[in-house]
């Protein structure tokens, strides 16, 4: 579906653009799990306001704009056991790894950081295997 790819690329440019702003103006790496995780475990309370402002923007603008322009279906599973397991894994995993798709993926790879590249390879490999197992072997998702 090439139209999806074009939207994907345009959205990607916006994501990279926001990371660029955050880096060049505030001197910060735009990694969502780090920004949020630092507020959760207390390691980032020193600059809590900056973190909170970023997160507020992430939630608020899509909330106002997106429902007027695009479909807002997330197609998330209704199996709450799966959702809770997934959330726990994402929370623990991103904090252990010190980054997620935005920090390791976008900001790390663009800097040719070995850690970012290794992390991205591992989470995509693990994700691919998990999906194959849960969807094509167990048929759960």
């Amino acid at each position: 579906m090439p139209i999806d790819w074009i939207y994907g690329f345009l959205g990607g440019l916006l994501i990279g653009g926001s990371a660029t702003l955050f880096l060049l103006f505030n001197g910060r790496v735009m990694g969502v799990s780090g920004i949020l995780g630092g507020l959760v475990d207390g390691t980032g309370w020193r600059d809590w306001a900056e973190r909170a402002a970023f997160l507020a923007g992430t939630v608020a603008l899509p909330a106002v704009v997106v429902p007027r322009l695009w479909a807002t279906e997330t197609h998330i599973t209704d199996n709450y056991l799966v959702i809770i397991a997934a959330g726990l894994l994402v929370g623990v995993g991103t904090r252990l790894a010190n980054g997620c798709t935005s920090g390791h993926g976008v900001c790390g790879i663009s800097r040719l950081s070995l850690r970012g590249i290794v992390a991205t390879v591992f989470y995509i490999l693990a994700g691919g295997l998990m999906l194959a197992f849960m969807r094509h072997v167990l048929g759960v998702i």
Binding site: I76, T77, V82, I83, A85, A86, G87, L88, L89, V90, G91, V92, G93, T94, L96, A97, C100, T101, F122, Y123, I124, L125, A126, G127, G128, M130, L131, M134, I141
Partner: peptide, 9 residues
């Protein structure tokens, strides 16, 4: 761990 959770949801 993150990749597994990412795939699940």
């Amino acid at each position: 761990l993150f990749g597994m959770g990412w795939a699940l949801a």
